[in-house]
Design a protein around this nucleic acid. Sequence first.
DNA 1: AAGTTTGATCTGTGATCACACTTGATTTGA
DNA 2: TCAAATCAAGTGTGATCACAGATCAAACTT
Lengths: 231, 231
Amino acid sequence: MADTATGLAPVGRDTVQDRVYSELRRALIGGLFAPGQVLTIRQLADALVTSTMPVREALGRLITEQALEMLPNRSIRVPPVTMDRIGDLLRARILIEGEAMALAAARMTPHLVTTIRAIMLEWEEMRLGGDPDRVDREVTLNHAFHFAIYRACGSIVLLPMIESLWLQSGPFTRAAIYAFSEAGAHDAARFHHDIVQALEAGNAEAARAALVADISRPFAYLKDKLGKEAA
Amino acid sequence: MADTATGLAPVGRDTVQDRVYSELRRALIGGLFAPGQVLTIRQLADALVTSTMPVREALGRLITEQALEMLPNRSIRVPPVTMDRIGDLLRARILIEGEAMALAAARMTPHLVTTIRAIMLEWEEMRLGGDPDRVDREVTLNHAFHFAIYRACGSIVLLPMIESLWLQSGPFTRAAIYAFSEAGAHDAARFHHDIVQALEAGNAEAARAALVADISRPFAYLKDKLGKEAA
DNA sequence: AAGTTTGATCTGTGATCACACTTGATTTGA
DNA sequence: TCAAATCAAGTGTGATCACAGATCAAACTT
């Protein structure tokens, strides 16, 4: 084979369905869809410029991940925000992401710490420059930061579960990010610093505590906001 | 509306895809598919007497749940058993099912305890009579016992994750069930008794400990067996 | 004028077909 | 005899069509 000699990289074969799935995931995590919004297959197929087939299979997968839900009418929508669901999701995230964080702390290497710190610094740098699509990049970098850590936890079972949790949290944490981008950004930066510091020291419980503080922040805000609206 | 007056139950409209999905889940949890076995869409469609369409969508959903995996060839197979995967799965199950169990213990009612105990007793009764398809019913009742508890935990986020864990564990715990049905059945019965007793007392940590003992048993057996085969 | 019916339109579901790719046996060549 | 090329069967993927149920508004009936 001349492949290696010519330095050709494997091209891979990624299907339309995969691209649709990734795109919908990105939109969901980034909060591009509003809680309660109804999604139709044909409308999405038009928007993504494909046929209905890849879209319906991607939607089906997202439904099994609890990222979307199917109504009795067989309509598909992104799950609405409820007080119960907020508490439920936060508890699950603390349990599972906390464990992944603690596992990662025990398996840290200097090289990994460097990579993770680089993502954190990129996030801070971005925050200072007044990007027009700042929120989008904030979401992307926050995702990259956390998953660089989680991937190091050594569990291929926990990882997809965490992804499912992020898909479920995405639609209604965006509002919190908006609100906190002025006031609470310092908190976020501090918590991320705490996480990196704890990881570097190999202190699993400190890393877990810092993570809990980090992910509790937007949930607490949402809960508070929802409580005021109800009153 | 006369519906409520006549006592008519909602009939529901379940699709072919749902039935295929349920059937494949049942087969997976029951261990009807061997680890490493390759599944083809057309073959399953023939076996289930439908077209390929519902099968491929059901398989896609099972892949996102990690119950099946797709090879680079785009072939679909049930994941093979590896030492790493066994440990990874057990750790995740202890973490998540343990938490669900502890939550359920805090929310127990006498009525729920009665229901759960009834399932346990049915399991023991079945074990005494020499059913020909004893293993199948053992799997079914064990599943019913655990999920009657988990459903009481009050978390609609954790439940699908536990189902995913069972789907992943199913294919290679059947071997363990066979081996233990003579020797270790007493252990299983004892652990289930311990669980019910702890639930009745509302003792969350005792319930968690008994559960850990229960689900660790077949995994430890498998690990031991795999270790001997390697040597 | 209020309620009911009817009709058009839009929804997801499932079947069928065409296509590209993989795989394994067969045939061809040296 | 062995290796390479070739052919055939089988695979998942995606597009298109037909269909049943849901939805909503206009027309009709009372």
